[in-house]
Design a protein around this nucleic acid. Structure first.
Length: 568
RNA sequence: GCGCCCGUAGCUCAGGUGGAUAGAGCAACGGCCUUCUAAGCCGUAGGCCACUGGUUCGAGUCCAGUCGGGCGCGCCA
C-alpha cells in the first residue's frame, strides 16, 4: 500500500486514463508550503492538457477524504495540507512492519543478475582509484539484491598476461613472499624487461608454454596470481566486499565457442591476416563507425604463432558469462575501457550474441593531478584505511570509554570504511573525483561518519527511553512540528529513491537520500525531545519516528556498504 | 587530429525524463554544551550555473559552436 494511496485513489477514479505510476507525490520545496505536493507534468502530458489546467481540475473536481485538510495550487503543482498525524502514523507503521525490506520495490523478484566488477590486474595493490570500481560494483550488487534479484558476483582474474609472465620469471618460490614483496618484485622485473630483451623474450616463451597447456608452467602462474589475489581480497574485504566467483583468464585461451565467432566474422568479410601475420578484425565491416583516424578500426585476435590476444580471451569469457542466461548482466568498467567494450560487443553482435551492459566510471584524481603508480602518486586503499582508522580511534577512545578495546577498534574501522565508501559513492560515476586526503579524514559535514553519528544518537535515545515502545504506532500519533513532518515525509520517499537508483543502476541517489535524512533527523533531534516529550503520546510517537528513521537509514546505508553504528 | 565523459559558491559535490525563490558540506565570521553523544546545531557572508548563439510559455537541465579538464585511438590487459 502506497503512502499517499488515499490521495491517489480519488484522482485515479476521476481520470481513468492515469495509473498510479503517473502520480508523483513529493515533499514541497519548503514544509511551510505544503505537506505533500503533486507534480502534474507527467499526467497532464498523458491526458493532453496543460499542467496548470489539470492541477485546477484536480483541485475543483476531485473529492478527497477527511485526512486531506486543504488543496491549493501553485501553477502546475497541487499542494496538499494533510492530517499529519494520520499520515505520519501510516508511514511509521509501514516502516516498522516492512523493517529490513522497507524501501524495496521488489523490481527484481524472480530475476537473476550477473555482475562483474573490480577485476584488477594481480600485480597491483588496490588504490582508491581502482577501488572505485569495487565500491560501485559492490553497492550495485547490494542494491539489486535489495530489489529482489538473485545476484552472482564475478571477478575476472587476469592471470596470464605478459606482466604475470615476468613475475613468474622473477619469482622462484611465491610461498616465501608476502603480497607487498611480490609487488616490489614486479616493479623490478618490469624495469628489467625494458632493458633486457632476452628477459622480455623469455616472458613471451612462458606465455606460449601456458597456452600449449604446460602443466608445470600453469602451476607457477597460478601460485603467483593466487598470492596476489589473496592480498587484494584482504584489502577489499576490509570494505566488506566479497565475490561469488573468480574466473581465471587462463581458462579461456582456447574456447571452441570462438569458432562460431570467427565464422561469422569471416562471413562478413571482417577477418583478415595483417602484415605481421596476426589474425585481425576490421571493425568497420561489422558496424564500427569509420572515423577519420581509423580509430579503433583494427583489433588483433591471435598472434602469428597462434597464441591468443587479450581480446580473444575476453570474447570467450563474455560468451561464458552471457551463457548463464541472467536477466541482467552488468560489468563495471573504468572510462578507459569504453571503446574496448564497444568493440567486444560488436564482435559478439556479428555472431548474433549479446554483451553485458557496461557501467562506466571516471577516474579519481589527486589535487596534484593524476594518480601515477610509477611516480608513487597513489593513495593505496590499505594506507587510507589505516590512517582513517587511527584518526577515528582517537575519537572513539574519548567517547566510548565504557566499551571494551575490541569493540572500540571495530567501531573505528567501521568509521574509516564509511568515510571512504561514502566519499566515493555519493559522487555520480561519470564525474572525475578529486580525492583530498584531509577532507576525507575530517569526518564532519557531508560524510559517512556524520550519518553514522546520527544513527548512534538514535540508538542512544532508544536505549534511554524509560519504557519499551509498543510494536506498532498507537492511534493517537501527534505530529505537531515541521521538523517531525519533514523527517516523516522524507522517510516516505525512500522507496521512490530506491526505484530511481535501481533504474539508473546507480547508488549515488541513495547516498544523497541518506545525507538529507540524517540532516532532517538532526534538526528533529534538537527541536523535539523524545524521552522528555510534553506528553506520553508524543513520547511514544517520537520514539517510533526515531525507530523508523533508524530502520530506513540502516537499510540505505547497507546498500552503500556502510554499517549503521549503535555507538561511536 | 577524431570519439566519449565532465565544467554549478574560494574548495568538494547535489540539483527525476526542461518547471515553485539553484541546494548541502568544507573553509571564513558570529552565537549554542549542569538539558536524549558538540563527529552536532542556529545564524551571517559567498552564484553572469565556463562562454556564445539557438529551441521553448519556460533552460543549470535540450541543440550547435568556442574554451578548459578527464579518458581513449592494432602486437599491454
Amino acid at each position: 500500500m502506497h503512502t499517499y494511496e488515499s490521495l491517489a485513489a480519488p484522482i485515479l477514479a476521476a481520470f481513468p486514463e492515469l495509473t498510479a505510476a503517473d502520480l508523483v507525490f513529493a515533499p514541497a520545496p519548503k514544509v511551510e508550503i505544503a505537506d505533500v505536493a503533486l507534480r502534474t507534468f507527467e499526467p497532464a502530458k498523458k491526458l493532453g492538457m496543460a499542467p496548470p489546467q489539470l492541477a485546477t481540475k484536480i483541485r475543483d473536481g476531485v473529492t478527497f477524504g477527511p485526512d486531506v485538510t486543504a488543496v491549493s495550487l501553485a501553477g502546475p503543482y497541487v499542494n496538499f495540507k494533510l492530517d499529519r498525524g494520520a499520515f505520519g502514523r501510516g508511514i511509521v507503521a509501514r516502516i516498522l512492519s516492512e523493517h529490513k525490506q522497507y524501501g524495496s520495490n521488489r523490481s527484481g523478484a524472480g530475476k537473476r543478475a550477473l555482475v562483474e566488477h573490480t577485476s584488477i590486474n594481480p600485480n597491483a595493490s588496490p588504490h582508491v582509484g581502482r577501488a572505485r570500481n569495487a565500491m560501485i560494483g559492490d553497492s550495485l550488487v547490494r542494491l539489486l539484491r535489495f530489489e529482489g534479484y538473485d545476484v552472482e558476483t564475478h571477478y575476472y582474474v587476469n592471470d596470464i598476461g605478459r606482466q604475470i609472465a615476468l613475475l613468474v620469471l622473477a619469482c622462484d618460490d611465491p610461498a616465501t613472499l608476502t603480497f607487498d614483496e611480490m609487488l616490489d618484485l614486479y616493479a623490478s622485473a618490469n624495469a628489467r624487461a625494458e632493458q633486457d630483451a632476452a628477459f622480455a623474450e623469455a616472458g613471451f616463451e612462458l606465455l606460449a608454454k601456458i597456452e600449449q597447456g604446460d602443466a608445470e608452467v600453469k602451476k607457477k602462474f597460478f601460485a603467483v596470481t593466487e598470492l596476489c589475489l589473496q592480498g587484494q581480497l584482504a584489502v577489499l574485504g576490509r570494505l566488506g566486499i566479497r565475490y561469488d566467483r573468480f574466473d581465471r583468464e587462463s581458462d579461456f585461451v582456447k574456447d571452441p565457442r570462438l569458432d562460431k565467432i570467427l565464422d561469422a566474422l569471416r562471413e562478413k568479410g571482417a577477418l583478415f591476416t595483417d602484415e605481421e601475420q596476426r589474425l585481425s578484425v576490421d571493425m568497420c565491416q561489422i558496424g564500427h563507425p569509420q572515423y577519420p583516424a581509423n580509430e579503433g578500426r583494427y583489433v588483433a585476435l591471435l598472434r602469428s604463432n597462434g597464441s591468443s590476444m587479450y581480446v580473444y580471451r575476453d570474447v570467450a569469457y563474455t560468451i561464458e558469462k552471457m551463457s548463464k542466461g541472467a536477466d541482467l548482466n552488468l560489468i563495471v568498467l573504468g572510462e578507459d575501457h569504453l571503446m574496448y567494450m564497444q568493440q567486444i560487443a560488436l564482435i559478439l553482435a556479428a555472431a548474433g550474441m549479446g554483451a553485458p551492459e557496461p557501467i562506466y566510471y571516471s577516474y579519481i584524481l589527486l589535487k596534484e593531478g593524476k594518480m601515477s603508480t610509477r611516480q608513487g602518486k597513489v593513495v593505496l586503499l590499505s594506507d587510507f584505511l589505516d590512517e582513517a582508522t587511527a584518526r577515528a580511534a582517537e575519537r572513539v577512545e574519548e567517547q566510548c570509554q565504557e566499551l571494551p578495546e575490541v569493540e572500540r577498534k571495530a567501531i573505528a574501522e567501521h568509521v574509516a570504511v564509511a568515510a571512504i565508501r561514502f566519499a566515493i559513492l555519493r559522487v555520480g560515476a561519470n564525474k572525475n573525483v578529486i580525492f583530498d586526503w584531509d577532507a576525507s579524514l575530517s569526518f564532519t559535514g557531508d560524510t559517512g561518519p556524520y550519518v553514522q553519528y546520527s544513527c548512534a544518537r538514535i540508538s542512544s535515545i532508544l536505549r534511554k527511553l524509560n519504557a519499551p515502545l509498543p510494536e506498532s504506532p498507537r492511534a493517537d500519533f501527534p505530529v505537531e512540528s515541521n521538523a517531525e513532518w519533514a523527517l516523516l515525509s522524507k522517510l516516505a520517499a525512500f522507496p521512490d529513491t530506491i526505484a530511481n537508483a535501481a533504474a539508473a543502476h546507480s547508488v549515488a541517489p541513495v547516498a544523497q537520500f541518506v545525507l538529507e535524512t540524517a540532516r532532517l533527523f538532526t534538526t528533529f533531534y534538537h527541536e523535539c525531545p523524545v524521552r522528555d516529550a510534553p506528553s506520553e503520546a508524543q513520547r511514544i510517537a517520537r520514539g517510533h519516528i526515531c525507530l523508523a528513521t533508524r530502520i530506513t537509514l540502516e537499510n540505505a546505508l547497507g546498500l552503500l556498504g556502510i554499517t549503521a553504528l549503535e555507538r561511536m
